[in-house]
Design a protein around this nucleic acid. Structure first.
Lengths: 347, 347
DNA sequence: TAGGCCCTGGACAACGTTGTCAGGTGAATG
DNA sequence: CATTCACCTGACAACGTTGTCCAGGGCCTA
């Protein structure tokens, strides 16, 4: 074990980990033999293996995967960038991605973009610098050309929940347009003619699609959307509350509201609960306990776990070498009727 | 730029990334100069810097952090192991940890233990092999001696939500005992004498603590707990449903139920909603929309985000070199009264 | 004009691992 | 007894980066 003369390595210091070299020295074998034992490669006598195992045990050795990654090129990790880790909608998606990753022996690195395109890019590029094998992104921005060199370099990328901007890539979406159209049509079917739409910021693809679905359903029913019936903006409770109140206090108020996502629905339910006049409501995204409210909240449910699972499977399919053209999968939504959408107009 | 004669590097192949060497060659400068530019180190003429930047741009170079990590020793990443990424309780915790990590320039790698000690260990050790700088763990197991070599080697570790087993380590908890005692006392204060407790598996520390709190409150009130009033087990809805039904259909049924966590509360609410006789309920953990149910669900709320934030701050404090003895922080809980705990016994 | 200093740039080793390849030992065979 | 062969084992280079150290050139001063 000749050491560099300039920097002799004395006792293993606190905070310094033993390496294969240390294990090899202690076991009295070569470096490569340790590597073989650690990786379960064949060609090691049981006796040698035992000696190595003992040395590993005694030193508390654990392979340094950073070095391994450097050597092998693959990191066995994937990155997931979503909007907000704390949003209950993304929990199941996150978990589903993790399960698929786990079944492929990969770890999951994740972060929140907080709906900020710059933060999204920063995060994505940091993940690329870590050389994640693949990326699953819920995009916040609308221009993903910054990813082109990465994708060309071999970073598999799948967009989920919303499509990529100005770039071709695998995408997995829910049918926002169809779901929203069906949800709105449901209100129409129950006699509503004056229906409001409260959604997320119009720059967000799903928000725009849901608005489009609402418009389509209204048009199908031959209804003209009056000014003041559409409100888009952040899902901040104050903003949404004001939007609801404004619609209901108008001289000629709406009799039903379509809520563009789970955050909006929650606030809308809260505002409506404080009002005497009953207003019909259908929300996009299912929410917990929706069935126990009075009336139960009718929703257009999407399957967040299926979104995550499908995206992750697509990703690993790519990592296994699939070289087909980018695909776009659209998962269906499901209307769950619970009462709030079945109220008939009272005026 | 003498290349190894055996492996000449032709055109950069698809799937192969340019390195600093490539950038240096293209810019006509030395390797270290590229490194200096990439890391914003001083000592580079503006003109040289410009040439290097152009080469970086042209080649689509991105620093390989794996190599950097290997050289520097620190990975600027931390690991978070929780029970279930999809559980709404852990969403805010996860997000809070992420925010703190982000403010320290670190990435977050995370995974679910699924309440399986073996899976927890597997995950934790995989993170150690990645050489995460630190770990935040919601433990599933009760023996963490396997972490000793890692901690000795310098992996900062903080346990959150539940304490570590057979090992000294920083810990951040909610006051499960106190919260549960207060919640139960609240039911007693409203006239209840026959109070059931439905909780998670008794091997889980928080579950045991909450049970202890319930027992303490009952004892304080001079009440004897009768057989059948305590039910512990998984939070599987079927299991919980049966537990509730059994308690309520007993010859001498309970008049109030204390639910040990959010999963239990949700199921309990659902069962109670289908019954005519009113039963009081207090749940541990706040749940969304609890205020809108009829009656509103009284809960003992813990601050999941504060748990995560406190743990992460503790972790980075350690990483900054703090060498104090392991600390234990217990965060208070808060009783939020909404009606369901204020029902008085009907019999 | 000579001496010395500062500033820029580059050669080189090292981080810990794995792939390649060659050497060495023992048993089986002619 | 010599030879072949299979099987272990280890030396060495390479992965891409950063820290150390030295060389050379320009500029200021005496």
């Amino acid at each position: 074990m000749a050491e560099s003369p300039r920097r002799p390595r004395p006792e293993p210091r606190y905070g310094t980990r033993p390496t294969m070299k240390d294990v090899a020295a202690r076991a009295g074998v070569g470096l490569k033999t340790v590597s073989r034992v650690v990786n379960g490669e064949p060609g090691v006598t049981p006796d040698t293996e035992r000696r190595v195992q003992e040395a590993i045990e005694a030193l508390g050795f654990r392979r340094n995967d950073s070095a391994r990654v450097l050597r092998k090129g693959r990191t066995a990790s994937i990155g997931l960038v979503i909007e907000d880790l704390a949003d209950p909608f993304y929990g199941p998606l996150n978990r589903a991605v993790e399960e698929v990753a786990r079944s492929h022996g990969a770890l999951l690195i994740n972060g929140s973009s907080a709906e900020d395109p710059e933060r999204e890019q920063e995060l994505v590029l940091a993940l690329c610098a870590r050389r994640v094998d693949g990326l699953i992104v819920v995009p916040a921005g609308h221009d993903h050309r910054y990813l082109e060199p990465e994708i060309k370099a071999g970073v598999a990328t799948v967009f989920v929940d919303r499509p990529a901007g100005r770039i071709e890539a695998d995408t997995v979406l829910s049918d926002s347009f169809g779901g929203s159209r069906d949800g709105t049509a449901h209100l129409v079917a129950h006699g509503h003619r004056r229906i409001g739409f409260i959604g997320d910021q119009s720059t967000i693809h799903t928000a725009a699609e849901r608005l489009r679905g609402y418009r389509a359903a209204m048009a199908d029913a031959g209804l003209v959307i009056e000014p003041g019936w559409i409100s888009l903006g952040t899902t901040d409770p104050d903003r949404v509350r004001e939007a609801v109140v404004t619609m209901l206090d108008a001289p000629d108020p709406v009799t039903a509201i379509f809520a563009g996502n789970n955050r909006v629905t929650v606030t809308a339910v809260r505002v409506l609960a404080g009002r005497s006049r009953s207003v019909a409501l259908v929300g996009f995204d299912d929410i917990e306990l929706a069935d126990l409210l009075d009336p139960g909240v009718t929703v257009v449910a999407q399957d967040a776990a299926a979104l995550g699972r499908t995206a992750a499977e697509r990703l690993f399919h790519r990592l296994d070498g699939a070289a087909e053209a980018p695909s776009r999968v659209v998962l269906p939504t499901r209307l769950i009727t619970r009462g709030s959408g079945e109220l008939t107009p009272s005026d």
